[in-house]
Amino acid sequence: MSRILLHRDVIGGGLVYLAADPDARGGGVGGRLLAHVDELARSAGRSELSLWVIDDNARALAVYERAGWVRTDELKQAGGRRERRLVRRLSG
């Protein structure tokens, strides 16, 4: 099972949570979920999205970056872990 959780104002620009069943990993489900997020955001008139990801979660960072998300220099501590902000600028 795969899940996406977006901010209530979907698309006030925040992706809250994305998860894929471990058995589905490596099959492109993360990229497909993120493409759907892009579609939702565009239909709501958004031009940029952002999210925070645990900074040492290499697997998640790779999925986001393949989908066009870009790391920023913004860091924060949350739940005892360092998180990094990523942004995604949407075209047309």
Rank of each mutant, 00 (worst) to 15 (best):
A20S: 14
L86I: 13
S43L: 12
A19W: 08
R25Y: 01
R25C: 02
H7I: 08
L18R: 06
R85W: 07
L40C: 05
L34H: 03
G27D: 01
L49F: 12
V10P: 04
P22R: 15
A62V: 10
W52Y: 14
G68L: 10
G26R: 11
G27E: 11
R88I: 12
V10N: 11
R46P: 01
W69P: 01
T72V: 13
A44F: 05
L61D: 10
L90V: 03
D21L: 10
A20R: 02
G28P: 02
I11W: 07
M1R: 07
A20T: 15
S43D: 10
V29T: 11
V53I: 12
L34I: 14
H7D: 15
W69A: 00
V10C: 09
R46G: 01
G28T: 03
G92F: 09
G80D: 13
D56F: 12
P22Q: 09
S43K: 13
A58H: 10
Q77A: 13
A58N: 12
G30V: 00
L40W: 01
G28F: 02
H36S: 14
G80N: 04
V53F: 03
L34W: 01
G92M: 03
R8Y: 04
G14K: 08
D38F: 05
G68S: 12
D55W: 00
A60T: 05
A20D: 06
L61Q: 10
R25M: 05
L15W: 01
R84T: 15
D21C: 06
L90D: 02
D73L: 06
R8Q: 11
S50I: 10
L18D: 03
V63N: 02
D73F: 09
R88K: 15
I11R: 09
V16C: 02
G12L: 08
L86D: 06
G30M: 02
L6V: 08
E39V: 13
R25T: 05
